[in-house]
Amino acid sequence: MLNDRSTPLSLLKTRRSGKPREMAAPGPARDQLLEMIEIAARTPDHGKLFPWRFVVVPDEARDVLAARLGEILGAEKADWNDRDVEAAGEFARQAPALVVLLSSPIHGHKIPVWEQELSAGAVAMNLLHAAHAMGFVGGWITGWAAYSPGVTALFAREGERIAGFLFIGTPTRPLEERPRPILSEIVHFWGGRGG
């Protein structure tokens, strides 16, 4: 069974992301979403810098986001078509909850930017774990919007980047397992030499 919440280890062993386009209501209530974010913020963070931020896009702002994504797509992509604009609107409106995670590193700090960016990735994973532990399903998406200067400007402050769009809701169909790595191919025990 995927996303088995019977024990903490069962959840970790069976966690599976959902496809945002296949998520429906109910989604988390505001208090539940804030609790998920609070849990997500309990992540490794060398230097206690909190080099990340969350922007929640509420339901009432989804149509505005859809329109803005369409405008930005038209301005940034020379080969756009009507289907691309439609897909951008669908992206903005999918799943009941949307959290934009921003990587917000402090440049020039003794903690390397790379470590601060890794912390943002850990925050995203913690948010997914919190969503699953509370009985929802989550999906972490990037795509063109995460790398678009125009979309980034909608959410980010100077020096920030979009680490991902985290969608949360209830799956409309059973989750499917995906291929997992073979441990012997990804785990190596160091014997004192390189490689």
Results as ranks from 00 to 15, higher is better:
residue 126 N to Q: 14
residue 172 T to M: 12
residue 93 R to P: 02
residue 153 A to P: 05
residue 178 R to H: 14
residue 126 N to F: 12
residue 129 H to M: 11
residue 137 V to K: 07
residue 119 S to T: 15
residue 120 A to E: 09
residue 139 G to L: 02
residue 123 V to I: 10
residue 105 P to L: 06
residue 180 R to K: 15
residue 140 W to F: 07
residue 153 A to R: 14
residue 72 I to G: 00
residue 164 G to A: 10
residue 162 I to Q: 05
residue 104 S to W: 10
residue 165 F to R: 01
residue 79 D to W: 07
residue 158 E to T: 15
residue 115 E to K: 09
residue 135 G to L: 08
residue 182 I to L: 11
residue 84 D to I: 00
residue 118 L to E: 14
residue 80 W to F: 13
residue 146 A to L: 04
residue 147 Y to F: 15
residue 77 K to I: 03
residue 104 S to D: 14
residue 155 F to M: 09
residue 125 M to H: 13
residue 150 G to I: 01
residue 112 P to S: 10
residue 73 L to Y: 01
residue 146 A to G: 13
residue 139 G to M: 06
residue 91 F to P: 00
residue 67 A to D: 10
residue 145 A to Q: 12
residue 139 G to Q: 04
residue 181 P to W: 02
residue 167 F to D: 04
residue 78 A to T: 13
residue 153 A to L: 04
residue 122 A to E: 05
residue 93 R to L: 04
residue 171 P to Q: 10
residue 147 Y to N: 11
residue 173 R to S: 14
residue 150 G to Y: 03
residue 162 I to H: 04
residue 143 G to C: 03
residue 126 N to A: 15
residue 124 A to D: 10
residue 154 L to A: 08
residue 147 Y to V: 08
residue 99 V to I: 13
residue 173 R to A: 15
residue 109 H to D: 13
residue 133 A to S: 14
residue 129 H to C: 14
residue 79 D to C: 01
residue 113 V to P: 04
